[in-house]
Each structure stands twice: as C-alpha cells, then as structure tokens.
C-alpha cells in the first residue's frame, strides 16, 4: 500500500498536504527560505559567510534565556546575535588577534554558554529542536513571530536593496557620495541576525548558516546580474525547502538536514553544469562555445 502511493507524482505531492502540520511546515519553511535566500545574495558577495556562521551560533543563549523567561525567543536571539557582532568588533579593535580568530572564539563561546544554560535551566526546552530545527512542530505563536520578522526583513532589504548592493560592491564610493555606510553595515548585520532567528526554526542553529550562504553561492554561479542573482537565490532556497520537507516526510528523515542537503545538491548541480561558470559549461554541449 505504501509503495503504491509512490507510483503517482500527484499523490507524492498531495498526500502530505492533507496533514495540517505539513501545510504549515511547507508554508513557513518557504517563507523562511525566501528571506534567507534574499539576504544570501548580499552575504556571499560581501564575503560574510563566517559572520553568518558566527551570528547564527551566537543566538543560542538568547533563545534559551528567552524561553526560560517566557519572552518571545526571537527577542533573545536578536539581542545575542547583535551582541556577538558588537563583541567581535570590540575585541578585534582592542587586541592584536586576527579577525577570523576573534569570530571563531566569540561564537563558540556564546554557543557553549547556550548549551550550558540548557543543561542548567530545567525547563521544557527541546535542545534537539533548537539545534536541528523542527519545522513540523512549529507552534502558532512561532508562526506569528516568523511572519512578522520575515516581512520586516523583506521590507528593509527591499527599501535599501540598491544601497546595500553599492555597500557590498564599493563602500568607498558610497561614503564619498554621502551615503551612510555605518547605517548600511548595521542594517545588514541586523537583517542577518533576524534571518538567522527565523532560519533556525527550519533547519536549526547548526545548519542555519547554509540557508544564508548556499542559495547565494548557487545563484552567483548562474548569473552576472545582481537582480537575477537575488531571484535565483530566493527560488533555489524555496525549492530546496519544499524538496527537503517532502523527502523527509516520505523517507522519514531529519527535516532540517534534508532541506540543507537539497540546497547542497542544487549548488553541486550549478557547480558542475552552470552555463558559464560550471565545470562542464552546459552551454558548450548545446550551442557550442567560441
């Protein structure tokens, strides 16, 4: 019986939709993927992959403390996310330690603090769902928070789309023509913290950085236009989320891991077959190459 349902693509897609938790998971994960994918274009071009990793790990103690105090977990996560960046900046400026080392030691410190807090604060915090995400078990209040934060990030990125592109491309020119580079720097960091907060629900703290860099990297291999890059990045992120959730449903796999693996496979496909920048240059096979 189980096997029969695999025979038609139709039921492969529609069967899970009969479950309320699956509809919610598919919608929420697509939204989160879109937000992270949008931001991803900027992070990959700015070279902030490590920064994304740092911020996403650093939100851990914030989530734990917020849960313990009964506050919205996004608030705690946001405070610690931005706090980690401020601390990284401070230590870098006041010591001779190199930046990547500072980033590494700050985020592991925060992350460790989070783990220790979980073991100390005996509450109903599910460590597993924080670390690995739980898109299938998302609560109603989490849904509201996720929608609010996602819209906020999308609106901010949309308004400052071109300024942020200029900031990533040539901050010196931005400064020279009177654009507030300081503001853009912290705007991008704020969006990064917020995206990490919503992303961790889908794939968890450990893998959320993939949501923030893989779609952008994939898109970067496929286009030479910034606007197209953003669109491709968002689409590949959404498609990965849908594939990941369906696959995890039918094969009973960890959902967060499945989503990120789907992203990785899409990246690998682009890496191998991208028309211009892929190893095999698909274009060459079809139309020849001068």
């Amino acid at each position: 019986m189980e096997f029969c349902s695999f025979l038609t693509l139709d039921s492969f897609i529609t069967d899970p939709l009969t479950h309320d938790f699956m509809r919610k998971a598919l919608l929420m994960s697509s939204l989160v993927a879109a937000v992270c994918g949008f931001l991803s274009s900027y992070l990959t071009l700015k070279g902030w992959a490590l920064m994304g990793d740092a911020v996403s790990h650093s939100v851990m103690p914030g989530v734990v403390v917020a849960y313990a105090l009964g506050l919205p977990f996004s608030l705690g996560a946001f405070i610690f996310g931005v706090g980690s960046v401020a601390l990284i900046g401070f230590i870098k400026q006041k010591s001779r330690v190199k930046e990547d080392t500072v980033i590494g030691l700050v985020f592991t410190g925060f992350f460790a603090l989070g783990i220790v807090l979980v073991s100390k604060i005996k509450s109903n915090i599910d460590l597993h769902s924080i670390l690995f995400g739980s898109p299938l078990g998302i609560s109603l209040s989490d849904v509201k928070q996720t929608i609010f934060i996602s819209l906020l990030v999308v609106i901010l990125l949309s308004i400052f789309r071109k300024d942020l592109m200029l900031y990533c491309f040539d901050p010196r020119h931005a400064k020279t023509v009177g654009i507030n580079v300081f503001f853009l720097h912290y705007l991008l960091l704020t969006c990064l913290s917020l995206a990490a907060v919503v992303g961790l629900q889908s794939v968890g703290i450990i893998l959320v950085v993939a949501m923030l860099i893989t779609p952008g990297a994939t898109a970067y291999l496929l286009t030479d236009k910034f606007d197209n890059m953003t669109v491709i990045s968002v689409l590949s992120a959404i498609i990965s989320s849908l594939i990941g959730i369906y696959v995890s449903f039918w094969f009973d796999l960890e959902t967060g891991g499945s989503i990120v693996l789907a992203q990785t496979f899409i990246f690998l496909f682009a890496f191998l077959f991208a028309p211009r920048y892929g190893i095999f240059k698909l274009k060459k096979l079809f139309v020849g190459y001068k």
Partner: peptide, 23 residues
C-alpha cells in the same frame, strides 16, 4: 562635500571585485 557629491573617487582596478555581478 560628501552631501554635494563634490568628490569622485576612481579606484584602481585591483581595488574592486571584478567578479561582482553588475553591468
């Protein structure tokens, strides 16, 4: 001067990311 865009800076070729997806 920044507000009036009085100064234009033309970077050296090495100073910019030539792989940036921009026309």
């Amino acid at each position: 001067a920044q507000k009036d865009q009085t100064i234009a800076y033309v970077p050296q070729n090495e100073g910019i990311d030539s792989q940036f997806p921009i026309s």
